[in-house]
Amino acid sequence: MRKTLTKLLLSLSSFSGVLYFYIVGRQDIPFVSLHQLHINDGHTFLIRNLAYLIIFGIFAYITLIFTRLAFQTGETLVVDEEKPIESVAVPTYIGLFVIALSLGSMSQETSLVVLIILFAFWTRLEKIFYFNPIWLFFGYRFYEVKSASKNTYTLVTKRDRLKGKHDFDKLRRINNYTFLEF
């Protein structure tokens, strides 16, 4: 139960960038919607949006703490090859942001249905690939790694510039294809 809840929080946090752009893209939220920027006070707009971003940032940090509590450390992995995957994952994410922004022009009901469908797909996708761009700001790097047995995983770690063979012995298993070191 604890793991299921944590996984849901992880998914929400990972999806929060899309939620943020959905909110910004809405036409009817004073001091937040991009569409109302020209009729609102610019400073309030900036402060409110910054507040949203900080809330999502804090939420992402809390999910890290929950992950530490819910997923045991101690998984081991011998890695032969590493490849940073931010360059692949971030553009995909930006594509989602654009979709989220464009949802603002739809009716609230339609856009919510699309958002829910997107989230459902997102959680399915996370069973094999996990990415949270906010963690990049906490110093985490995302690597596609190949184990000595030639299996491929997503590894999230603070270790920078990973190259060559490495042994990991304090990993947490988010799912069977994603491991987190912290």
């Binding site: 081991t76 992995l77 011998v78 184990s147 012995d169 069977n176």
Partner: peptide, 10 residues
Amino acid sequence: NENSSADLNK
């Protein structure tokens, strides 16, 4: 898999 438990499913 002692040194690479990640290679096994849970």
